[in-house]
């Protein structure tokens, strides 16, 4: 997120701005934890991808990376340490990075923005299935630490991925629909919130954040 040169921003406004970003980041961390648990009864139906995407797209890396990593740490406290942590750290931070970069694209037409966001979400969700299957067959956790298991790696990966393919398909379809319907409205709401919370930034820089106006 770009801001006015530091010498031009008064101290009070800067503190308020930083506090707002920390609060939004904490709110998103809570939303990610709550959103994941709320849908946990439905296998591979999730809102985490959508929330990470909206957060990264509108608020940028300063908000999304702390939110994602706090979410992972809280999940670790709930579910314990295991190989999923590696998958989560790679996947959700990559998702945040992709949607932050996507937010920097100068795309004016909403239809195009939805299509691009939907394609990125679908690709990321498909890769999530590949990544989690690969990590599960490649890295193990015995309680004392992680270990690597390379024996018959690719045949085991094929079995693991095939076994989970219906779940991954569900997740991909779910995200394709969710992004097509909800992504842009949530971006609009978040953009309005961002304008309210960081007035000094927007007064000096109209193209802050994702550079889009709704």
């Amino acid at each position: 997120m770009r801001s006015r040169p530091i010498e031009k921003v008064n101290r009070r406004g800067k503190i308020r701005y930083n506090a707002a970003l920390i609060a939004v980041s904490a709110m998103y961390a809570a939303l990610l934890v709550g959103g994941k648990e709320a849908f946990s009864a439905l296998p591979n139906v999730e809102v985490v991808t959508l929330l990470v995407a909206v957060c990264a797209y509108v608020w940028g890396p300063v908000v999304v990376f702390p939110a994602v990593n706090v979410f992972i740490v809280v999940d670790m406290a709930i579910w314990g340490v295991n190989t999923w942590i590696i998958s989560y750290l790679i996947h959700w931070n990559t998702a945040g990075l992709c949607f932050w970069l996507l937010g920097k694209l100068k795309v004016r037409r909403n239809a195009v923005r939805i299509v691009i966001a939907d394609i990125v979400a679908v690709v990321l969700t498909v890769l999530f299935g590949v990544l989690t299957s690969f990590i599960d067959v490649f890295v193990g956790y015995s309680g004392g630490g992680f270990f690597v298991d390379t024996g018959e790696l690719f045949s085991r990966f094929a079995v693991m991925y095939t076994a989970g393919i219906s779940f991954y398909a569900t997740q991909t379809v779910c995200n394709a629909v969710l992004f097509a319907v909800v992504f842009l409205p949530l971006v609009r709401i978040n953009n309005k919130a961002r304008l309210r919370l960081t007035p000094q930034e927007n007064a000096s820089d109209d193209s802050a954040g994702n550079g889009q106006k709704d």
């Binding site: 340490v81 942590i85 590696i86 193990g140 015995s142 004392g144 630490g145 992680f146 270990f147 690597v148 298991d149």
Partner: peptide
């Protein structure tokens, strides 16, 4: 660190 703290495969 967690990855470095590897153990042998059981």
């Amino acid at each position: 660190t967690a990855l470095v703290a590897c153990v042998d495969k059981p």
